[in-house]
Nucleic acid binder design. Structure first.
Lengths: 187, 187
DNA sequence: ATCAGCATGTAAGGCGTTACATGATTCA
DNA sequence: TGAATCATGTAACGCCTTACATGCTGAT
């Protein structure tokens, strides 16, 4: 059961724009991507080594490293032609694993065991987190709107729009859910 | 870093309603819960053993097993008082890990590498899957609407409503995304 | 001078999936 | 009689997270 490791594709995808270090990759993942995919150092660095061994990425030549005599070097990787092909192959396959794991919904589903007020508190915690993240997503979206003439940005814009629209739906639901709970359940 | 294993709480939550076998639990998880949480046999059976060792569940006495002389017995578990307390403790803690991992969004984000038509195909595959799941969620919702006099069902109803409303937002987004791609990108 | 951020990596462990192994029961 | 479903479990493996280990660089 090969090729289930999607972090490979995240790395290749990011390198498809420009050469990056492992540290850079982590930062990118922590940006707009983070709401639909995650990555950690303990994940990224080994992945880069594997991709290099497979010939899908290569250490960038030239000026990016520090002087040889000093301590640790900065290692920038760039994507190879084989890497671009692997990325395209993955993009061409329309099957995708889309998974949502919301502990908040689990707590809601079993909420009767704790009662209405605890459940309201849980919904409110969710609501606050979503509202904060939505703000950030809207900020990204506003920035991208200005640069839609670049094709790449259209794709980024659509991804961020997905976030904005679903988060707005979440917030609407929060309002309704709190209302229904208060109406229907005594305490 | 204890107590990160949420499958424990899924099992306790399900047993809070009635005694169930491991097989039953799997079936329940594959129902309305499946859109926000998953579980497998290789996950559930060991969990039941652990919960039993911790005194949070117990094998139900009585008539559920098959005759002693025949082959394998059917083992129904029920929640203990300690189990109910553990469940409540978890519900009382408002922090929750809510994770979304959508490979479709990843493919969209890096879509420029494959082009407009491939990306449209990927969005359409997503759209179809969501439309099918939405149908099912609406069916669950319709059934629950009739029995909202029972408090438990109010909680289930809210969970399913969350699914319906977010999936509807997804579908709306799909329409807009396809339109924008066709307008903005040549091929 | 000290602290935040840059930068790379390893080790251990956690959690979960898939595949396998086994066998009973029920229904067409 | 054969297939589907009921039913329980184990083993191997995969992927990721957390914590640890190390040291440089730049700003206050």
């Amino acid at each position: 059961m090969a090729r289930e490791k999607k972090i490979d594709m995240v790395v290749l995808g990011l390198l498809s724009h420009e050469p990056l270090t492992g540290y850079d990759i982590k930062k990118e993942i922590d940006g707009a991507i983070s709401f639909f995919w995650k990555g950690s150092f303990g994940n990224i660095y080994p992945t880069l080594k594997e991709l290099e061994a497979q010939g899908l990425v290569a250490r960038s030549a030239g000026k990016l490293g520090k002087a040889e005599d000093s301590g640790r070097e900065k290692i920038a990787y760039s994507i190879t032609e084989a890497g671009r092909e692997a990325l395209k192959e993955w993009l061409n396959d329309e099957k995708a694993s889309n998974e949502l794991r919301y502990e908040t919904l689990l707590k809601l589903f079993f909420g009767a065991n704790a009662g209405r007020d605890i459940t309201l508190k849980n919904i409110e915690a969710f609501e606050q987190k979503i509202a904060a993240d939505l703000k950030l997503l809207k900020f990204y979206k506003g920035n991208l709107e200005k640069v839609l003439d670049n094709d790449d940005h259209v794709y980024f814009y659509l991804t961020v729009s997905f976030g904005v629209e679903t988060y707005e739906a979440y917030l609407k639901w929060c309002g309704k859910a709190k209302k229904l709970l208060k109406e229907r359940i005594k305490r």
